[in-house]
Design a binder for these strands. Structure first.
Lengths: 195, 195
DNA sequence: CCGGTCCGGGACCGATCGGTCCGAATCCTT
DNA sequence: AAGGATTCGGACCGATCGGTCCCGGACCGG
């Protein structure tokens, strides 16, 4: 047993792929480009990933985990404040727009790039959207909104508006208004209880 | 002068291209596909359009005009009610999600497909976003909002949220909440005047 | 030191891309 | 009817796509 395959190759390739896919879009990036950028042989990449579709799915999975991490982060210290968690999540999303090289949500971008519902990438993205909605709905419910569905819809509109508008208009776009907006929306949804 | 080139060829080709680009995304549609679907020779298409980029730009221009038409339509009968115009615009946008084969906003989708700011398609899209914002800002100002910029930002978030979320979750998504949401937002922005 | 494993790099494949060009059929105008 | 412009439809081009295969060198364990 003379030699061991490097165990983190998959992750390191995925790092490169994530950067390229995010920056240029999935369609615009060729496998050769990923390989060149990473500096490995084609051998290694095709051993770690069955094909481009597989690589894209892995990319989306990572994006999903990143979002889950963000969700988690927004909840830290707010375990008993689901309303604050909601607002913090919106603020975190809005803050991402300010990052240099902001390129929107990789999942949404990729979802738009693969309209075919049968494509694996499309399915992964669709799943993510569903769970995203569930988690927001859970927060809205626990926050005690009179109509959690509507609050969820509104927060979703704001969050996805941030993604899209941030991509379209950059740091001078609508994202700056999102935090206060979300706060007001949540407050209003809670106040409705007494109505 | 034996024969005249058919004058509406460009428009008819653009019809086909619009349908295909909208349904499958720009990158996924080949020129050959446009030609086959239209049933003409390659000659004709390349006489009417300098190349794929040119065709894409024409497609985006048409999308832009469609949006302008929608903006116009929402304002009919509301010439003296800019606030109602804003709400109607959001409602119109939300209604589009319910259409079968809804595929989001072609301009946003294409914008995401061409991240390179130097690409003509990207520029056309960016221009559109700017004028879109201007027009909303004009309405918000004329509506008498205390802070028209913020109202514009909020309406923009809602509209672009509709596009994105409608694409992600279809007719059962957040778009259903958009109309009432916009109305509330506008009302609140106007009420702020007395605050 | 040696044998085996792994990996970088590239040749190669078929398919498809955008785009050019041309022959033949078509149809209008005179 | 004749002539000429227009259009169809496909051959063709170079480039690039995703993907397979293989060689030679680097590296490690016995």
């Amino acid at each position: 047993m003379p030699r061991k395959p490097s165990p983190d190759a998959r992750e390191r390739i995925l790092d490169v792929a994530t950067r390229l896919f995010t920056a240029h879009g999935v369609h615009a990036v060729g496998m050769q480009q990923v390989i060149d950028e990473f500096g490995c042989g084609k051998n290694l990449l095709y051993r770690e990933f069955a094909g481009k579709d597989d690589l894209v799915v892995a990319y989306l999975t990572r994006c999903r985990d990143t979002w889950a991490c963000m969700y988690e982060q927004a909840g830290v210290g707010r375990e008993d404040d689901p309303a604050g968690h909601l607002v913090a999540l919106v603020e975190l999303t809005a803050a991402k727009v300010l990052e240099p090289d902001y390129r929107g949500c990789g999942i949404h971008n990729t979802h738009a790039e693969f309209p075919d519902p049968a494509h694996p990438a499309h399915k992964v993205a669709a799943e993510h959207f569903a769970t995203m909605r569930e988690r927001l709905l859970d927060l809205a419910t626990r926050a005690g909104a009179r109509d959690p569905e509507t609050l969820t819809d509104r927060i979703l509109l704001i969050i996805e508006g941030i993604y899209t508008n941030g991509l379209a208009q950059g740091r001078n776009g609508a994202a700056r208004a999102a935090g206060a907006f979300a706060e007001e929306v949540v407050r209003s949804a809670l106040a409705d209880r007494s109505a």
